[in-house]
Amino acid sequence: MKLSKADIQFIDTYLENSDVVYADIRMEMVDHVASDIENRMEAGDTRSFYEVFKTYMVENKAQLLKDNKQFLKSADKKIWKTFLKELKNPITPLLYVISCVGFYMLHQNFSLETSRLCLSIVPLVGFTGFIFTYVVYQSVKDNKRFSVVERLAFPFLALYQLPNIFLNNTKELSETSDLFWTIGGASLALTLVLILVIISIKLFKNYERQYKTLA
C-alpha cells in the first residue's frame, strides 16, 4: 500500500509546522514516517491515513524531534569534516602564499591606514560573499532551507574577527615582527575564508544533486 502525494505532502507540512524547518531533514523524516505508516496499513490497520498518522505521531513525535537535533549535529560534523579535508588540498598552502605576497605588496605601495583597513575587512568580504551566494541559492530553491548550507554561516562568523585580533596586537606595521605577524594572520584568515567559500560551493552543488526533487 502506497500513500498518495497528498498524504506525503501532509506529513511534510506537519513536520515543518513542528519546527523541522530544514527541507533535507524533513525529506529524510517524511520517507521514514511514510514507510512506517504504509507498513502499519499493510499489516492490517484498516483505519484512514489520518487516523493512523495521528496514532503514529502520538507514539513517535518526541523521538522525531529528538532526531531533528541529531541531524543538526550531523550537519555541523559534515561541515568540519569537509573543511578539514579541504585543508589538505595542495591549493591551500598556495592560497596562503599568494595572500601573504598580496598583503605585503599592499603594505609596500599604500599607506599604513590603507593597509590596516584592507586587512580588517578581509573576513567581511568573505562573509558578504557567502550571504549573497546563500540568498541567490535560496531564491533558486524557492526559499527552502537546508541544514548544512545554512549552518555554514557559523564558521564564517567564527573567522570574522581573526584579522582584527592580529591587528590589535600590533602597534606599527613598520616594525618587521609586527608586519610579519599581521600579514601572516590576515593571510591565514583570508585563506580559511576562501576555503569556506570553496566548500560552500561544493556543498551547494551537492544539495542541488541530492535534493533535486525539492527544487
Results as ranks from 00 to 15, higher is better:
Leu203Ser: 11
Ile91Asp: 06
Leu119Val: 04
Leu188Trp: 06
Leu188Val: 13
Leu196Ser: 07
Leu194Ile: 13
Gln9Phe: 13
Leu65Ile: 02
Leu15Gly: 06
Met1Gly: 08
Leu159Met: 14
Asn206Glu: 11
Asn169Trp: 04
Asp24Lys: 00
Asp7Tyr: 05
Asp178Ala: 06
Trp80His: 11
Ser174Gln: 10
Tyr104Cys: 00
Ile165Glu: 06
Phe132Asn: 08
Gln9Val: 10
Tyr104Val: 02
Val30Glu: 10
Ala23Ser: 08
Phe83Arg: 04
Lys61Glu: 14
Leu157Tyr: 06
Ser139Tyr: 12
Ala43Glu: 14
Phe156Glu: 03
Lys85Tyr: 10
Asp19His: 13
Gly185Pro: 00
Tyr207Lys: 02
Phe83Leu: 07
Glu175Val: 10
Asn169Ile: 02
Cys100Phe: 15
Phe146His: 02
Val33Asn: 02
Ala43Val: 05
Lys69Gly: 06
Thr170Pro: 02
Ala189Arg: 04
Glu113Thr: 12
Glu172Ile: 09
Asn39Trp: 03
Thr92Tyr: 08
Phe110Arg: 00
Phe146Met: 02
Glu113Pro: 04
Thr46Glu: 14
Thr82Gln: 13
Phe103His: 01
Asn68Ile: 01
Phe49Gln: 11
Ile165Pro: 05
Leu203Ala: 05
Arg47Met: 08
Asp45Ala: 05
Val122Ile: 15
Tyr96Cys: 11
Ser187Met: 02
Asp45Gly: 11
Pro155Lys: 12
Val20Leu: 04
Asn206Gln: 12
Leu87Cys: 14
Thr191Gly: 10
Leu3Gly: 05
Phe49Asn: 12
Pro90Ile: 08
Phe71Leu: 06
Lys73Trp: 09
Tyr14Met: 08
Tyr211His: 03
Val20His: 05
Glu208Cys: 04
Phe154Pro: 03
Ser147Pro: 05
Leu64Asn: 01
Pro123Tyr: 01
Pro155His: 10
Ser115Asp: 01
Arg40Thr: 13
Ala34Cys: 11
Tyr207Ile: 03
Arg151Ile: 05
Ile131Leu: 15
Arg40Cys: 07
Ile121Phe: 00
Glu172Trp: 06
Phe146Leu: 00
Trp181Phe: 13
Asp19Gln: 15
Glu208Tyr: 06
Asn169Ser: 03
Pro93Gln: 07
Lys141Ile: 06
Tyr134Ala: 07
Asp142Gly: 11
Tyr22Cys: 01
Asp19Val: 11
Leu162Phe: 15
Asp36Lys: 13
Met41Arg: 09
Leu152Asn: 09
Gly184Trp: 02
Glu16Val: 07
Phe166Ala: 03
Phe146Lys: 02
Leu194Thr: 05
Ser74Pro: 04
Thr82Leu: 08
Ala23Phe: 04
Leu173Phe: 00
Lys54Val: 08
Ile165Met: 13
Lys2Thr: 15
Leu203Val: 15
Leu159Trp: 06
Val125Arg: 01
Cys100Leu: 15
Ile11Phe: 05
Gln63Thr: 12
Phe180Ser: 09
Asp76Trp: 10
